[in-house]
Write a protein that binds this DNA or RNA. Structure first.
Lengths: 301, 301
DNA sequence: CTAATAGTGTCTTTTAGACAATATTAA
DNA sequence: TTAATATTGTCTAAAAGACACTATTAG
């Protein structure tokens, strides 16, 4: 039925499709870039004390131009016949050997100048993994791959109230600056990201800009910031943080992960009440810890 | 400094960029498609009663192949030099004449077969507008443009618990079915969308599938479902719904909008407490309503 | 006067915050 | 015994749910 409808040139859909030339239009390349997050433990000298947790991200040192020698998110171009998610999974597997992990599309960045080679959009993904036993491998284009610890903090928050002359209303502009610091051994990468929220009576607009950047390739500082905000935003109303945990974990470990994501301390009793319905207790306990053993839990499915 | 680093072929970054051939790779087309939502009032025969509100979306009737004669989201291909957001804004302006409205990127759909013409990714956006005084205009490729009322309800929710043999753990699969019905005058478009959430100890996966579809072009039923879920999800922890309101509104009108988005009635007193800090009262009141006048409010910026 | 909505008061329930008390282990 | 973490209890404060009462208007 539908196929028999003819357009103004008298073509059926099948005829139209046969005559369609995709090559007539200039098209962008599309890449999938991945922010792979994990939580790792710092060394602890005191055998009794719990090791501190650090939120980490996997970066690769670029072995090819452009941005040769700088650090970048793992990623690659989407191939014909593939979804962006499949590209992301392929990269993830190459880099970490992991297969079934939490994966979420973040945002598609499409600034035409974001890649000096050509017009490249980046469909970005966030993966959350338990990194115990994962040795990052450098892919084809990469010299090295390594886990970088993350520090991402607000350094400035400023709100401006303006009369909006174009309409008779008001306008408020809230400018927030975040400092992103990534560290691996003696390598230290830094960037300053500005988040600007503009409100008028008619709309609300949110922009992220990279103000400065030392050692990160492309606009990847912005993608990382975006991923961190998504992670923070989802932590307290989903069980997303569980994907950073091993199969069995103590509630204190889980709380540490929440704390390291939210970058603030939480109250123990309230935390346990809040996540109580998301976990199942096992019969196992930690051992040889130098203090009272702790019950191990799993994620409730 | 950085520019002087040479790669394994002995090229500097500048030399590499001059030699880079983007044409060597097959690339997708990228379109921006828009779910433009608004709230409209139904006719009310009783002069005293408040008119009911309906959540609506703007659709265009396709005037060209493929899917000629079916209804689609407004959208278009991203042009060189443009961001996807600029494409979306351009389409919005063409279709509604509106300029400064709430706009949010939803998701990038990249199934290689989603468009019969060629490889086309869709970077989708959601816009929220106050439609009073907006007459939708059909663009180049469109025969007509019209507001369709939306009904989107869960018709089936089913959870399956399985032993996962690959690991020693469990797997739960929750399958939800939603019926989407869009109506404009005597046109009625329907689709059934399945949302499947699969959980194992290792990951959580979320998929949307179109099970049936009558009258909607491409995979647009899925994009609409995605937009509706985003809208619902954000309503109670942001002031996003205010972008569907005129400059001044009564709290009952605002509550109606919340109710129509969430598809459930809310308690008046609790609602007023909750949104109280998001509004500013004006000195104006509604008039000639056949009942007690209502104070008008604006969004607090 | 009446039928409608507007707006507020208050009691209850639930959730979150704060902090203290008790329990248990390896060295 | 001690220094650490584990776990639970309880009081308080804040937020959400439920429902009823009063206020005000056009016709």
């Amino acid at each position: 039925m539908k196929k028999e409808i003819r357009d103004k040139n008298g073509l059926t859909e099948a005829e139209f499709l046969r005559s369609y030339k995709a090559e007539d239009y200039v098209r962008p390349s599309v890449a999938a870039d991945m922010a792979i997050f994990t939580v790792q433990e710092a060394e602890e000298e005191n055998y009794r004390k719990l090791p501190e947790k650090k939120l980490c991200i996997l970066l690769i040192e670029r072995g090819v131009h452009p941005y040769l020698g700088t650090w970048a998110l793992p990623g690659g171009f989407v191939r014909p016949g593939e979804t962006t998610e499949e590209t992301a999974k392929r990269e993830l597997k190459e880099e970490t050997g992991l297969d079934h992990v939490y994966l979420e599309q973040l945002y598609t960045f499409s600034d035409p100048d974001r890649d000096p080679r050509t017009w490249v959009m980046s469909c970005s993904y966030m993966a959350l993994i338990d990194s115990s036993g994962v040795k990052p491998k450098a892919g084809d284009d990469a010299a090295k791959a390594a886990w970088f610890s993350i520090s991402y903090g607000l350094t400035d928050d400023h709100t401006e109230y303006r009369k909006n002359h174009r309409y008779d209303g008001m306008k408020t502009i809230r400018t927030m600056r975040y400092e992103l610091v990534l560290e691996h051994e003696d390598i230290r990468l830094t960037a300053v990201i500005e988040k600007k929220v503009t409100k008028t009576e008619y709309d609300t607009k949110e922009e992220y800009r990279i103000l400065s950047n030392d050692g990160l390739a492309f606009d990847h500082a912005r993608i990382i910031a975006y991923g961190l905000e998504r992670l923070r935003g989802k932590v307290d109303y989903t069980d997303i943080a569980f994907h950073l945990m091993p199969l069995q974990f103590t509630l204190t470990q889980l709380q540490q992960v929440y704390e390291v994501i939210l970058d603030k301390p939480l109250l123990k009793a309230a935390f346990r009440r809040k996540i109580g319905h998301l976990v199942i207790e096992t019969d196992s306990f930690t051992e040889n810890a130098g203090h009272r053993p702790s019950r191990l839990y799993r994620r409730k499915l």
